[in-house]
Amino acid sequence: GMAARILLEIRRGTQTALLVVREAAVPGSPEDVVVAADRVEVRSGGGCDAAVLPAGVRLAPASGRGLRRIPGDGLHLRLRLRCPLLGAAPRHDLIFNLRESLKPQKNYVFYCQSCGDIIVEDRKFLRVLPLPSENWSALVEEWCCHPNPFARSTLHPRRDDCFLGDTFFLLNSGDESNETKGNTRVICKRCRTTLGETLSTDTIKYYVTEVMIQPSEENFRPVPRSQFVQSMVAHCLVELSSSRSTFRFIIKGDNGKIYVLIWLLNSDTVLVESSGSSFSHSGFTLFGDVSMPSSGSVETWNAVKVLYQPCTKSRNKE
């Protein structure tokens, strides 16, 4: 038979797992579920569908508890792991992590994430520096007993600088010609997507969700739009939660409008999912076209778990 339709949500910190066996294609059909250390089998109608767990993921079947069936979702069972999760590495991360990967004295190409058009070609930076938090000036006011010494200071990059913020990065425009709209927004010449905004005559602020950065020696690797945005948002939530000791976030548009409130529940989750369960995948992610395991395969990747509340008028009138 084909691979059983399962989702395994593992917590690294507690070494526990929630096993979800999706409902059968024919609702109400009898099923027998067998949980072994390295596999999950679903037997129904004389057939047997099995999902073999990746190397490094081993369950302790005797620890199963809290068995219940959730209408519309499937069978839920909580288990412990037999051994610490070590070998279950996530699938290759296609998203370029700015803080970890953008280094001085190396050449990079900046692409529009939506269409792949080159925005900045073969740029080498002498300095790649992190920016202070967004409200750093207000904090200075609280700590200084004299007028703010940085009141007239501006953190604008020089010609060969790249300044990294939490959700953006700053570049010196130099001699490059960027198309602007309304003298502030920077838009892609090919697909007309908003990429960022101009802060001054020589400083451009690019949004991390709109631009892909890759070393010059590598070819452009397109990533599905929602997968890219989801990964970048997850990176931002984890980094901000760690550096600011907070788990509550607000997602705003560039017009200042609040779209969604997010509570970060945990960032140590590992998902193991088999083919056939993608019809319920939207219950665990914010976006719909995230790449899914191919037929008959089981894949593993890191994830963050969030609770969110939409704030748009159509979804939440209050």
Rank of each mutant, 00 (worst) to 15 (best):
D161N: 03
K124D: 08
V52R: 13
I10N: 00
C83H: 09
C115L: 13
N135W: 11
G72S: 05
G182S: 07
G296V: 04
E210H: 14
I118F: 03
H156D: 12
I95C: 01
H281S: 04
S282Q: 15
Y207N: 10
L19S: 00
V211P: 03
P157I: 12
R192C: 14
V229K: 02
P27G: 09
V42H: 06
V21S: 02
V57H: 01
A4Q: 04
D122R: 12
C83L: 11
Q15P: 00
F228H: 04
F169T: 13
A303P: 04
S177L: 07
I204E: 10
T184I: 15
S295T: 07
R99F: 14
W301F: 11
E41D: 14
L19V: 01
P147E: 14
P90R: 07
F169R: 04
D166K: 10
H76Q: 07
S101V: 02
I251A: 05
L67E: 03
C144Q: 13
K305F: 02
V186A: 11
D161S: 06
T184V: 14
P54F: 03
D175V: 12
S177H: 06
S114E: 07
G28L: 04
Q227M: 13
L264C: 04
P61F: 02
E100L: 05
T194E: 12
F96M: 12
H92C: 14
G288E: 11
F163H: 03
E31S: 05
E100P: 03
L264E: 05
W136S: 08
F220E: 06
F284T: 03
F125Q: 06
R152S: 05
G13M: 06
S114L: 13
N178Q: 10
N316T: 03
